[in-house]
Structure formats: C-alpha cells, structure tokens
Design a binder for these strands. Structure first.
Lengths: 227, 227
DNA sequence: TAGATTGTTAATCGATTAACAATC
DNA sequence: TAGATTGTTAATCGATTAACAATC
C-alpha cells in the first residue's frame, strides 16, 4: 500500500488499539518492540502490524524493531490526538453523565466546552464544572462559539430536530449514541456511532450460537476423509 | 454459503441492524419488503441482504420479497432474543448506572439480576429496584445463583481479580466496557467489548484526516534525493 | 560481519457485488 | 401468464498472511 492511498476502515479501527498497547509498553519503560513481540501481546500478527504501520510511514528499523516512545508519538499524531476539537454534549441523562465523567476527552483530541439538556430540572446544574444549558440556546451558542463536534447522548426521537440545528450551524462531526442514522440525512457529515443495544444483541447471538448450536449435522461427505 | 458454515463476524454484526430496521417497518405497519427496498433504507445493497439472510435460511419468496413480521421474528430468533440469560453488573459508577438505566436488557435476551460495587457508600443503594451488593459477596452470589453473563463497568485495574472470581464460578460470557483484554487471559470465554475511548479516537482520526489531509502529493516518481 | 527485523511485494483468503436461473 | 424478486453461483474486490530482499 502506498502512503497516498486512502486508509481502510479496518486499519483505522486498529489504530486506537496500537495506541493503547504502545502507551502501556511506554509506561512500563520498554524502549523497543518488534512487530513479532507486539503481535504476541495484542493477539494479532506481525505481518498485519507492519502492513498497518507502513500505511503511514516507515517507523521501524531493520534488525532492531520499533522505538516505543517514538512509535507511540507517531500513532498519537496519526490519530490527531494533539488537536483540541471543541465539542458540545447534548443530553445529560445517565448516558450523557457517564460520557462526561468517564471519557478522557482531553487526551483524545477534544475539549468538552458545553452541555445541553431540555429538562428544566437539570438546566443550570453543574457537571464537571460546566453548567447544563437549556437546549433552546443551542443555535445561539453554536453561532457565537466555535463548535467542531457534537456528542449526541439523546433518545432517538430527540436527535433529528437538534441535528438540524447543529447542521445548520455548520457542525459536521458527531459522536452518536442514538440509533438515528445521521449519515442517511446529511451527506457530508462524519459520524461515529456507539450502539450499545447492538453490541448487547451481538453478545446474545454469540452466547446462543455457543449454547444452542444450529448444526444441521450434514453427516455424509465427512465420513470419507482420511488422516 | 451453506447453512452449515460458520457465520462470519461481518454478518453477525449486521444482524442487530436488520433487527432495528425490520422493527421499524413492522411498527409502521409494513407487511412486505424487498431486498432492494430494505437496502435503500439501510444504505446497503440488496445483494448483501439476500446473502446475509441466506446464511440462516430462505426467508423470502420469489416475486414477492420478505414478509416483514415473519422476517422480524426470524431475525429475533437468530439473535436469540427470546432467551433470558441471567446477567450481573459490576461497577455502578456513572457508566454502570447508564447501562442499568439505558439499555433494554429484557428485549435483548438478558435478565439483569444483581448489581455489585466495592464502594461502601453505594452498597445498599437501590438502582432500578435492585440493591447494590458488596463485591465481596460476588463469589457467594455466583455459586448460589445461576449467572450466565457479567457486564463489566469497572475501571481497568479492577477487572482482572474480579474476572478471576467470575471465571472460577463458571461465568463465561462478558460484556466488557474496560480495556482489560479478557480473551488474552481466558481462552474459552465470549467477550463483547465496548471501547468508548477507542471510538472517540477513531472520530478524532477521521476529523483530522478530513481537515488536515496528509496528501504527500507525490509529484514525480523518485525525484527523490536521498536523506 | 552475522543475525535480526523491517518494508514491501506476492499469494491467499474472505467478503462483497453482479448475474441469472428458479419460481412465486 | 408475465413481471418481480428471490436464492445461489460466479466474478470482483479488498484485506490478511506469507515470503523475502533490503538493511540496520
């Protein structure tokens, strides 16, 4: 793969994992790592690691491997974690609060600059030093501040009208926890979805598949093998 | 693909999406849908939908398409949503609370039967009608109740010792929100991971890639002086 | 230097798309 | 019946793995 080709989603989704394992190695004081060692740790293959990294550049050294702190910095830069995109969060219910308190925005490229909710009983409350604003002020806020991204922690039915406001104000990047499909409605947005229910259903499928396998036991064909 | 082959993860991860769109169609009173129509709605391809469904059986009818309520029921059955696997949740911090309150377990194949935390100030508190139990009782609880799955809403460093207790009690299915890699430690478990930080980093990468593209504009092949 | 390990090309494997005969 | 749409096979596309020359 040439360095100019578009990076595939498969590779992109592996980058945060490289980031995590390299951070751990770095914190443990490791100075070098080979693709073989890293693959072993991560449960992937050396070949894949070298292919992935070489999408972005030749970060290693023949006969030596990769310099851990250097590679960590490279991955951080590739991910763009040195940026501080301004983000607002909509919906400070249980999920929104968990996101505010649980996610490490600052080290993941984002500044969380404002919170919004429609529930009057929560408007004005401070969370992590930020007042919850009335969602009625959303448009005003976005027009008077630089807002790059929106984190949507809303019930599905609330998303569409608010997304229209956001889109109208030029917000193009979304972290979406609802099942409303923003890409179907707006064709020039970047949306990262987190679908907890889908994830849980996948677990249910995999459990069921293991506990109650649907083998239709095709008995022939198999018998005439040898060893 | 024969009905006996192992279903690929790509297909499995699309099943919850089929479930959602079919539920919506059903709720809107639609009786039939063709693969072409469904593909349009979902932003996928008719061919893929037919391929996916035919991993599990021939649910359609030539010249007609698919019966919506019937196909919905089939997908539900394939996902195993009619099961009621007993699940316990560990860690009722912000994230744990969000999961308890936000996720529709009952319609996704699970019964949430107990909550655990180590923080004495939260032990005893009721959440959704369930008392938070002391994590010290975890082993006792698991040995005296049928526990199929554990939802791990814990900080990374708390996972390993508790996972050992759970595994020792025969718990093999995990919904894991931490970055501790359970599959590296236990080789016969089924783990579904939700990595919020990874998801956010992926968004950061995609924003950065769009705003600051790294086109190296290779103007002439090897006009390259060495360095 | 000799051994190690990368960067990169080639081979394989798997997933998606296209095509079309079967059939409702 | 004729038109529509599936189920399924074949063709294409993309991703992973293997191999090895380059080189530290």
């Amino acid at each position: 793969m040439s360095k100019n080709d578009k990076i595939s989603m498969s590779v992109i989704r592996r980058l945060p994992r490289y980031y995590r394992f390299l951070l751990e190695l770095k914190n443990n004081g490791a100075m070098r790592v080979s693709s073989r060692e890293l693959a072993e740790k991560m449960g992937s293959s050396a070949s894949q690691i070298r292919q992935d990294l070489n999408c972005f550049g030749g970060f290693g050294q023949q006969g030596y491997g990769y310099d851990v702190p250097k590679l960590f910095d490279e991955i951080s830069a590739i991910l763009g974690l040195d940026h501080r995109y301004n983000a607002i969060l909509l919906g400070v219910g249980n999920l929104g609060r968990a996101v505010v308190n649980h996610v490490a925005f600052e080290s993941r490229g984002f500044n969380l600059v404002a919170l919004f909710d429609k529930d009057p009983s929560v408007v004005g409350v401070e969370i992590k030093g930020m007042p919850v604003r009335n969602v009625a002020e959303l448009g005003d806020y976005c027009r008077s501040h630089q807002v790059d991204a929106a984190f949507l922690c809303l019930p599905r039915e609330s998303v569409e009208p608010l997304a229209e406001v956001l889109y109208g104000c030029g917000v193009r990047y979304y972290w979406n926890f609802s099942h409303f499909d923003l890409t179907m409605k707006f064709d020039d947005v970047i949306v990262e979805n987190v679908h907890l229910n889908d994830s849980l259903m996948t677990l249910c499928y995999r459990i069921t598949e293991e506990k109650y396998p649907m083998i239709e036991d095709k008995p022939s064909e198999e018998a005439d093998g040898e060893n």
